[in-house]
Amino acid sequence: MKALVAIKRVVDAHIQVSINSDGTALELEGLKTAVNPFDENALEEALRLKESGHITEILAVTIGTQSNVEILRHALAMGADRALLLETNLYLVPLAAAKLLKALVLEESPEIVLLGKKAIDDDAGQTGQMLAGLLGYPQATSISSLSIEGKDLIVKREIEGGTERLSLRSPAVVTADLRLNEPRFIKLPNLMKARKLPIEILSVKNFNIDTTPKLKTIFFKEPPKRRPSVVVNSVKELVEKLRANEGITL
């Protein structure tokens, strides 16, 4: 089986992103970036399936500017066989990303497509399902385990209040939950080796897909601040305040 793993470059999860002075844009210049954590789980799972002999080739794909080459090197150092950049300077909404990935999937014919369940920057959680819908492939979102039995993918997915198990006929699209696995650490020699490996680059213009955004972010602001907290000194005082000031029946 061949796997295609889509990875997104995002601002490192530990960095607090700030807004410019007139609230019209985010200040992202020069911030440390990384592979979106959920996408790293997707890649790790593909690597494990390759190690267990179920997957023969892993193609890692990202969409964005030349700066994204950095996360493709990371993917190669983790163990991806090929790395491909779909190059564009435009900001893409999930639908546009899914359309580009669809075109690539039709060209590369992977039997399994893996993505993270969402990106930690836009928190949309749409791209995997959109890709599956556009391709007419079966899908499983937020998976916490994956195994391959012949042509079928057996997955466990996280749902509210529990988990469910599904069997999908390949080719299929799955999206990874953090619980799926613990991504490996990259060894320095692998990182050095990855620097010399080729990166394939395709311009988004080649695909003849309308990427004009239908959604425009016109304003950014910090969320409203909570009122200052009240320090209470005892359980009794806490319960009294909740009853008297907040109208909570305890």
Binding site: L95, D123, G125, Q126, G133, K214
Partner: peptide
């Protein structure tokens, strides 16, 4: 919710709509 987020983006893409989560 995990219920709606499973099927709604799939349907949105098939309708060619840029969904808002």
């Amino acid at each position: 919710s995990s219920f709606s987020l499973d099927f709604l983006p799939r349907a949105a893409a098939q309708l060619d709509v840029a969904m808002i989560s």
